[in-house]
Amino acid sequence: MDAINIALPKGRLLEPSLTILRSAGVPIPPSREWGRAAVITLEKASIRLLIIRDDDVPTYVTHGAADLGIVGKDVLMEAGGEFFELFDLKEGFCRLVVAVPAHLRQSYTARRTNHLRVVTKYPRTSADYFRRAEVLAEIITVQGATELAPRVGLADVVVDLVATGRTLQENNLVEVEEIATSTARLVANPVSYRLKSDRIWPLVEKIRAQVDGANTGGEKECGS
């Protein structure tokens, strides 16, 4: 039996991903047993877990280094690449929004028609969004702490991920537009999807049963 490589993202989605896989019958030992290892080989199940940076998951899956991957939709949109988006795991809900300093909220609509300077960790997604919205936007890419940018005059507008909205509030920013919502997705390499479908689909169905069971009390549609 061919081994299946599954790429999992470090960070906030790791534990929920492991929980879902375990509930779908993947025999993953408790985290304390493998600690900081990047590769966990599950000999009997013929599965290898690769624990990598979340924004590397699309890359691993696109190139076939991983057959399957779990990663946030926000990361997928930003990375692009070639993979099948198989299933919405409905974990790690958050939203990608446009936010401005509170005092600029009133003038935002007027400013939006002209030219926006946008600071973001999501340059591709932001550029796509504003292009489709027919807004001329200048995108400035940063790696973190987007919310600081307006305070120091780097830009007036930020595009960032919001889970609770607290960070925005603490930095006196208000949301003015929602670009997208994001949850964790199960993705597959296009060739693995075809060649290893006899292994991938049963796993997807088990995961689906768990996730749908948890979310809608067992309602099942499409692909039962």
Binding site: F84, E85, D88
Partner: peptide, 11 residues
């Protein structure tokens, strides 16, 4: 290759 959106569209 977006089966999540496909499922949503079908529903």
């Amino acid at each position: 290759r977006n089966l999540v959106l496909l499922e949503k569209t079908l529903r």
